[in-house]
């Protein structure tokens, strides 16, 4: 890991009117690191993720990102054009519901190729080759390249969404409940795949999940949120094996043991 963080989040606070979304969240994310944000429904996980990924303007606080030239830039002080360019090249966003992240009416190949075309790739053969290769990496058969995502199963859609995000070689990927709504065996396969890709590509990732097993498998570090605040923060194994806060203890002890 390098000496400089990739992302510096400083006192992010988001209010919805007088209601609290999340308050005073600060952390650094290092290159190659996977950070899990866990907590119950309504604890502010998704608000925080959206505030960091510039989908939702925070009430106060700053998010700084280290660009490829090594300079830190405040995301909310960037021009919109630059920010959107960053989002579709250097970042990825995997939604819980694949329909939010995919274009359901165009083929799988075009879904994967869209980002390539957006950054100026104008050679059909190359785009298609790249798309085929990425479908292979996420374990989708090459002969499904011209099928629409609506003909895919839930797990396949989620894998396609991941391929679509990774095709431009991003350095940071946001995932919002990436395994939500999938059955357990498909979840396991997806987690295995994501873990492999994150390792191979040296990605940094912020994963929001309510599933502690996902956090255990994917993340190096985790933050536990409750009522908009980060109540515990540490290495994943430490937090899960030796939770300090009463709420975290409750959370860990409520995992079903089969």
């Amino acid at each position: 890991m390098s000496d400089h963080p990739l992302l510096r989040v400083n006192a992010i606070t988001k209010y919805y009117g007088s209601r609290v979304g999340c308050t005073d969240v600060s952390f650094n994310l290092w290159p190659g690191e996977v950070l899990a944000i866990v907590g119950e429904s309504g604890s502010g996980k998704t608000t925080l993720l959206n505030a960091i990924s510039t989908n939702l303007m925070p009430t106060s606080g700053t998010v700084e990102y280290r660009m490829r030239d090594g300079q830190f830039r405040d995301l909310y002080r960037m021009g919109e054009a630059e920010r959107r360019f960053l989002m579709r090249t250097d970042w990825g966003f995997v939604h819980q519901n694949p329909a939010d992240g995919l274009r359901m009416t165009v083929s799988a190949g075009a879904n994967v190729g869209e980002r390539l075309m957006a950054i100026g790739n104008r050679h059909y053969g190359n785009i298609r080759q790249e798309a085929t290769q990425w479908l292979g990496r996420v374990e989708i058969d090459a002969d499904r390249i011209d099928d629409q995502p609506r003909d895919f199963s839930g797990g396949m859609r989620q894998r396609l969404q991941i391929a679509r995000n990774l095709v431009t070689g991003p350095r940071l990927v946001f995932m919002d409940e990436p395994t939500g709504g999938l059955d357990v065996s498909v979840q396991a396969r997806l987690l295995d795949l994501v873990r492999g890709l994150v390792n191979d590509l040296g990605l940094s990732a912020i994963v929001v999940t309510h599933d502690l097993a996902v956090a255990r498998l994917l993340s190096h570090r985790m933050m536990v949120m409750k009522e908009g605040k980060v109540i515990e923060h540490g290495l994943t194994d430490r937090v899960l094996d030796d939770p300090r806060e009463p709420y975290t203890q409750l959370l860990v002890s409520s995992i079903l043991q089969v």
Partner: peptide
């Protein structure tokens, strides 16, 4: 980029 997605399709 989206315009080319249509042509790709």
């Amino acid at each position: 980029g989206l315009m080319h997605v249509k042509l790709y399709e």
